[in-house]
Design a protein around this nucleic acid. Structure first.
Length: 262
DNA sequence: ATGGTTGTGCGACAA
């Protein structure tokens, strides 16, 4: 089974790119973030024609928005609000065989990494805390897959310069510690780093600003696929589909993928 | 270099 996660940065603008990603990667489940469309504007028919006959969608006007697309049977697996906000940052699917797929879009957190002066950063830290509490309550022997734009690049080789980004939101120690607490709360296993060694540079996002793509390769690994401990031995392959970042009118995120033998 | 670019949706904000 192949899972793809992609911050598409507008599903309506990139519907053809979505088809191209699907053709290239042939996912069984495609998880999108930043769809930026309220449910009534979601391109249901075009996506059905692209082969995704089942769609779990949580969108709002202008911002955020998540979706899980598949051709396989699935039902809602506990989609919910976080931080008492209805901002469409999570959708979950029950994909059968007591297995659940969670798709997250964690708040980016603004520019200043100080919750006292930056409400967006406070929201990000609150979100991480709630997600940690939620993970701690998941049965340790459960079968969960968790993907999404977590907006944190935790390891030194998840950013183009560890030193230069230590005070930049997405790579500050307080965020990295919070993400590690979230991971440890369920014993989540980072499926992509289980395949790609930690001493290898690996990114999934490159800013639209400056000339970071493709020349200087100033990327960050903000997107993740985590699995329950019980599923960790079943991860057979995983990676970042970098090619898509070089296509015409790209999202600033590349799709990421994992193959899980279930 | 306190910039830069893209998206939603038509002004300002988010990333």
């Amino acid at each position: 089974m192949r899972i793809v996660s992609w911050n598409i940065n507008s599903v309506r603008l990139r519907i053809d790119t979505l088809k191209k990603v699907a053709d290239a990667l042939q996912p069984d489940f495609m998880c999108l973030q930043e769809t930026k469309a309220q449910d009534s504007d979601f391109p249901t028919d075009a996506i059905t024609e692209a082969g995704f006959t089942r769609q779990l969608v949580r969108g709002m006007k202008g911002y955020n928005g998540v979706a899980i697309l598949s051709n396989a049977a699935m039902s809602d697996g506990g989609s919910r609000d976080w931080c008492a906000r209805e901002d469409c940052r999570h959708v979950a699917a029950d994909i059968g065989d007591k297995t659940f797929l969670h798709n997250f879009y964690v708040p980016a957190g603004g520019d200043e990494p100080d919750p006292k002066i930056n409400e967006k950063f406070a929201h990000k830290m609150d979100f991480l805390s709630e997600a940690t509490d939620w993970s701690a309550k998941l049965p340790k022997k459960g079968r969960h897959i968790m993907v999404g734009d977590l907006n944190i690049a935790p390891h030194e080789n998840d950013v183009w310069s560890h030193k230069q980004l230590l005070k930049v939101v997405s790579h500050t120690p307080v965020e990295i510690d919070a993400l590690e607490a979230w991971r440890a709360a369920h014993g989540w296993v980072d499926a992509i780093r289980a395949i790609v060694p930690e001493d290898e540079k690996l990114y999934s996002w490159w800013s639209y600003r400056n000339r970071s793509w493709p020349g200087s390769d100033k990327g960050r690994r903000l997107d993740h696929i985590w699995v329950s401990p019980a599923l960790a031995p079943k991860v057979t392959d995983a990676g970042v589909y970098r090619d898509a970042r070089g296509w015409e009118k790209p999202s600033d995120h590349a799709p990421i993928w994992a193959d899980i033998d279930i």
